[in-house]
Design a binder for these strands. Structure first.
Length: 284
DNA sequence: CACCAGGTCTCAC
DNA sequence: GTGAGACATGGT
């Protein structure tokens, strides 16, 4: 990958298989929006805008140093996806191979653990459009204000200062209690996310599931998208359907996709929805 | 105006 | 251990 600075922008050349439309609109993050062909959103308390010019990636308003320390990892550009795809090809799974080809440009974002965990608690039994709104409402309510009227995702301590009723009035509904309790557990140290990060995936899921409102699916999403647990394999209604349809021999259990199971999950999920011709238009 | 949303909890069988 | 219902709310 070749990185060059041009004014306020960073130009990345020689990156294979990177498609912002697939990356930001496949339900792994909730704070990026597409406007005039450019995906823009907030993470790490900073705004990032991602556009493409042919197969070059344009990062707007991004310094070289922020790229090196934050965005390179965030965007999945520290991983060798070509090598990963080769490894997945070696599984000899024809359906996965087709899904992988269709969703080639997908990357797993490496989001911040707390934000991912909290966001996926909010996501349960909710649609993407509303999840986005609720996350923004939470940020506005107690996130640090940034330049340009943006708000950072609030830390657990800031969220813990709100009452459950405050959260309910933001529209969180019955999830208000979950978010409130979760925030307090993390703020007071009884749930140590850094410790969770060091656990093997199965144990990390167990640890997170002790919190009320966090089940296996939410825990798996948080671990995959926020804790760098590439082998986490979130099973939702879509994946359940896919497993029954294409992997009947595994009888409802997850096939062994190995250490990159989470990426497989994203390929399979995207492929099924894309083929079903169902796009939820969340990208506006 | 119903029905649903990338679930989770609870309480029966 | 498996399986319905309830749960808050707003999008479509």
């Amino acid at each position: 990958m070749d990185v060059q600075q041009t004014g306020r922008n960073l130009l990345l050349e020689g990156v294979d298989a990177f498609d912002p439309d697939l990356i930001f609109d496949c339900g792994q993050c909730f704070r990026f929006y597409k406007k005039e062909g450019i995906w823009s959103g907030i993470a790490f308390g900073k705004r990032l805008s991602v556009g493409m010019d042919g197969d070059r990636i344009i990062l707007q308003g991004c310094t070289k140093s922020d790229f090196d320390t934050l965005w390179k990892g965030y965007l999945g550009l520290s991983e060798d996806y070509a090598a990963i795809r080769r490894e997945l090809s070696a599984l000899g799974d024809a359906h996965l191979a087709a899904a992988m080809e269709a969703g080639k440009g997908i990357r797993i974002l490496r989001q911040e653990p707390w934000e991912a965990l909290c966001s996926f608690v909010i996501s349960q039994n909710n649609n993407i459009a509303r999840i986005r709104k609720l996350v923004e409402a939470v940020c506005k309510a107690c996130g640090r204000e940034l330049e340009g009227g943006d708000f950072a995702f609030p830390g657990p301590d800031a969220l813990a200062r709100l009452s459950e009723d405050d959260l309910r009035s933001l529209g969180l509904g019955y999830r208000a209690g979950y978010v409130s309790q979760l925030s307090r557990s993390v703020a007071d140290g009884s749930l140590d996310l850094e410790a969770v990060r060091h656990l093997p995936t199965a144990q990390a899921i167990e640890a997170l599931c002790r919190v009320r409102g966090i089940g296996v699916k939410v825990a798996s999403c948080a671990l995959l998208f926020g804790f760098g647990k590439d082998d986490a394999f979130p099973v939702d209604v879509w994946i359940r359907r896919i497993l029954c349809k294409y992997y009947p021999e595994s009888e409802g259990k997850s096939p062994n996709f190995g250490r990159y199971a989470g990426l497989c999950q994203q390929y399979l999920f995207y492929y099924e929805r894309w083929r079903g011709g169902k796009s939820d238009g969340a990208a506006q």
